Amino acid sequence: MKKWVGLVSVSALLLAGCTFGDSTEQQLSEVLQQMHTAEEEYRSVQDPLNEAEQKEYALFEEVLALEQEQTDELTEKLEELSALVAERRDLLSTEKQSIDAALEASDFSTLDIPEENQSYVTQIDEAYDARYATYEQLYAEYEKLLALQENLYTEMAREDVAIDQIRDLVQQVNAQNEVVQTHVTAMNEQTEQFNQTTDEVFESLQNEE
């Protein structure tokens, strides 16, 4: 497995501490701040998630180094690995709930935005929808990774399991981890794009004052 790079949080919210005379800027700023607040738990689980993943990786290396007759130690470490998968699944669930809450907060339809500024709202809305869609894909692929790892540890605990079967399962885990890494990269890129879009919108609004 490769390390899952921590996701970049929504950073467009330097706006939070500013006061705008323009109604469009103020209203957009308030919604963005609500989204940022909703993603607080999403940001808070990144370090624990990465730590659990790194611990699991190190522990798995220890398992591979064990001799076949070290049954008790193997069983203990495999139980620890399964517990780490469960921990990561819980953290992922917390992350998903936070992202979903941010999506719910990203409702621009109720804002009283002048017609001439509606295109700016659309730009932000579409950029965030793209980011959320990318996260949905990442979440689905990471769930698949967890399921494959859980199955691997279960099979390794069987006394009659064949080495070739374990080798195949490890390859499946590694391949899925590569898929996850691709989606992590895409998520980070979409986050940067959302932040850039938001910055450009506010710069344009301020230039129009």
Results as ranks from 00 to 15, higher is better:
M1G: 08
M1L: 15
W4N: 13
G6Y: 14
L7A: 11
L13C: 13
L14T: 06
T19W: 15
T19D: 13
G21I: 07
Q26S: 09
S29A: 07
E30Q: 08
V31I: 07
Q34M: 05
H36Y: 13
A38W: 00
E39N: 10
S44M: 14
Q46H: 11
D47P: 08
A52W: 02
Y57G: 02
Y57H: 07
A58C: 10
F60H: 00
E61W: 02
E61M: 08
L66V: 00
T71G: 06
D72F: 08
K77L: 08
K77D: 10
L78W: 01
L81G: 02
E87W: 04
D90H: 13
L91S: 08
L92D: 09
L92F: 15
S93C: 06
T94V: 14
K96T: 10
K96Y: 12
K96M: 13
A101R: 01
A102T: 05
A105Q: 09
D107V: 09
S109K: 15
T110C: 08
L111Q: 00
E116L: 04
Y120G: 02
I124R: 00
D125R: 09
A133W: 06
T134E: 10
Q137H: 11
L138W: 15
Y139Q: 01
E143W: 04
K144T: 12
L145E: 12
Y153H: 09
T154G: 12
E155N: 04
R158P: 01
D160V: 02
D164G: 07
R167I: 14
V170I: 06
N174A: 15
N174K: 10
A175W: 03
Q176T: 02
N177E: 06
Q181K: 04
H183P: 00
H183G: 00
A186T: 03
N188R: 05
E189N: 14
Q193A: 06
D199R: 15
S204P: 09
L205E: 06
L205N: 11
Q206F: 07
N207D: 12
